[in-house]
Design a protein around this nucleic acid. Structure first.
Lengths: 242, 242, 242, 242
DNA sequence: TATGAATGAGATTTCATTCAT
DNA sequence: TATGAATGAAATCTCATTCAT
């Protein structure tokens, strides 16, 4: 369901169709204000829903609240979404508007050192993904994976795997080019990403309760430093260790 | 509410009482019918509830299901817990029966190298915490932090902070004893723990949907290796880098 | 149901079974204390139930509370009463241990003036009935009349009517003996009794909420005075007025 | 919550708002099906609830029944009232829309004899209050005073006290103008009102069970006559008696 | 398109009643 | 006789969904 098309109800396949990235992430659209923004509606609704789903979880979110936050009546929701579950699926799939693709492209052209590429990846990821709505979606999906296995699988394939792919590309590039130690690469992307993901989750959970705040800049800087250190070639040998 | 004491209702405060983690494990009993009365009950109920809360989340779990899984009637739940929310709180605080304390003690006496201690910590943590119910509780608490801020705060103070404390101890020990690089330690424990926590979360979310399985042994071995590598002293200089 | 006979079960008329008369009016019995008072049980239970029914009404009273107040377990109630409703009926019928009969007898022998007899009736009634449990029962029965019509009817016949009968006797005696004005007597007893009844009700309702307290002595004194005044013969005529 | 305003929920305070007594009268509407939506709703619901509360008491009344009697679904009740208790409070406070105020005004202007004023008060009271819903509310409140002390207090202050005030005014007026005996006035209003109140209660309790019916006209006529007689000056003396 | 009153299925909670001990 | 854990039917309350306007 694209926000720029007519509201097409009841999408076909189990999950997700047609992600049109631009809209979900930024719900406030930039029309001339004199005109009651018409087609922005579904996007606004989804945005409101997403916020609440992230805050409270799927079940605990009432459509009443979604409607109120979106500033419409409850009935209006049903003009655009067949059911609460449909809304959820839409919200998730809409959210998957990956800059991942953009970044994939950018990476291929990169010519600097792999360490620098890794640095860039981590900081860019945080800025483009972790700190945006996508961070919340990940937390949401993680919480609801048990209740929406198909959706979770879809999310895994389309977001997680591709996200990991970015890391995979960098570390393999580094190893192949002799810049990094030759560590086993199966879990390396996950390990590289774990702290970034944790930061995303933290921000949408304990951080909210006035618990300990994490300073992303410093936290990620240290992570990057450690990671590169860990991948650095052993100075007095060209073998790897384990 | 300890499973071995008399069922005391309405303990609204969140307190760790009498940790008997074993009771939170298996709820399925294979009696003939409905004749049994003991005071293993509260523990059984809590165990059943915990399982479901972890699987489906708090709101999505119906008390009907909890009762069914525990093999009792719905009314019985109210014999031991004032409300669903109370049940949730109990389940969380009961679960926090940390081996953490045990491990804290053990660590102080440790005399080997800090690298070995770190290795030990990570593998022990996984075995004693990550792979047990506590792992699920963490996922649950992360999901519900927004809905139960007080409980989340409590959990943060009593579980997360102390868990991080273990890592804190080890890395500081290593640095002080000149075994590790002198990296800034503020976020070091988090970074060291992040991959372990991610593994816990994974197991209770995407792992369930038949997504990619992670082999804890190997995953953690790599993490440990990388971490120690990252902390290793730079061989031919006494300075640190950043 | 006489209070002085042996507990005869299953009396004839529509309602009521199993009254254990001796006990209800005074629950604390006078056995040797060394022996666990056995047969006092049902009476104690009924007494506890009565108190609560009066305070909270029938539906709002939980058997749990009755048991607690009587100091027994809930199950015990069922050893003596078939159901909550049965308990209610018993409590009502037990309560009807009328001093009315005694007073009826006393009245017949009275030889003084009818005004004095009226004075005596009012003050005695208050002391013997209004101020005792019977007052509460009246309030209870009035509240529950809609839910227990048969019982209400029974109560009407056996308590209210006979109580009114006392007043009826007095006023008719006064008129017949030329002491009182010849007013129509159909509603005279009710009118004479109304203030006394209101006092009973008040004590078991608004009085409890810290509202205005009524001083029975003075209140009833004024009532008596007014009543006698109202019945006094017109001084300068031997006819009646209307 | 006034029946003519928008249904505002959660007015926990007990306030007299916008008395439209007429709306509390007939709940039975004879529509074809379930198509009607207006804002006569809250009034209809309250009316249905009141009837049942009076008949059966608060606890014994099921919201199911209220809904059925009002011809709506159970859920609809919660559109207008936060809880059963809130409904109760609303019903009580709504009911208190006293003609008392009107009568207070009328009384001040009265110029006839105090005896006539008293006559008028009694008959008017019966017609305007006793015979209307307010009579039932009094019975209800008396029954539930123990369970809703705050509400009872409120009722006492706003209804009972003011009602008594009417009688107070008349008898004091009579005494001051030398028309009545100089009796102590503290309890005089209560005594004057007691028979009228009893009549109200009777109608909503024993009267329903096919017990003895009371003919209001005659009953009240006698009461009035007696009362005036009792207050009449002693003819051949200017002193009072006691 | 948009509303929001109304619905009804289903959730949580209560409590009279039972029954093994 | 007495207990109190357990039950299950029924009550209160919630909320996704519908539909007349």
């Amino acid at each position: 369901m694209s926000p720029t098309t007519t509201p097409a109800k009841s999408q076909s396949h189990v999950v997700i169709s047609d992600p049109h990235p631009t809209t979900l992430s930024s719900a406030k659209v930039l029309e001339p204000r004199w005109e009651r923004r018409k087609d922005a509606r579904p996007g606004e609704l989804a945005a409101a829903a997403l916020e609440l789903f992230i805050e409270k979880g799927f079940s605990a979110t009432r459509l009443d609240d979604v409607a109120r936050r979106a500033g419409v009546s409850k009935g209006t929701l049903y003009l655009y979404f067949d059911s609460k579950e449909e809304l959820f699926k839409t919200v998730i799939s809409e959210g998957i508007v990956s800059r991942i693709a953009e970044y994939e492209a950018r990476m291929c052209e990169y010519e600097g050192s792999s360490a620098d590429l890794l640095r860039d990846l981590i900081s860019t990821w945080w800025e483009q993904i972790g700190a945006t709505t996508l961070g919340g979606i990940t937390k949401l999906m993680l919480s609801e994976a048990g209740n929406f296995p198909a959706l979770a699988q879809y999310y895994h394939e389309n977001v997680i795997t591709r996200g990991m792919g970015l890391f995979d590309y960098v570390v393999k590039r580094g190893i192949e080019r002799g810049e990094f130690r030759n560590v086993p690469t199966e879990y390396l992307p996950r390990l590289s990403a774990a702290p970034v993901v944790m930061l995303m989750l933290w921000r949408h959970s304990f951080d909210l309760c006035g618990c300990e705040q994490i300073e992303p800049k410093e936290y990620l800087a240290l992570h990057t430093d450690m990671l590169i250190h860990a991948l650095k070639l052993d100075p007095n040998q060209d073998k790897t260790s384990a």
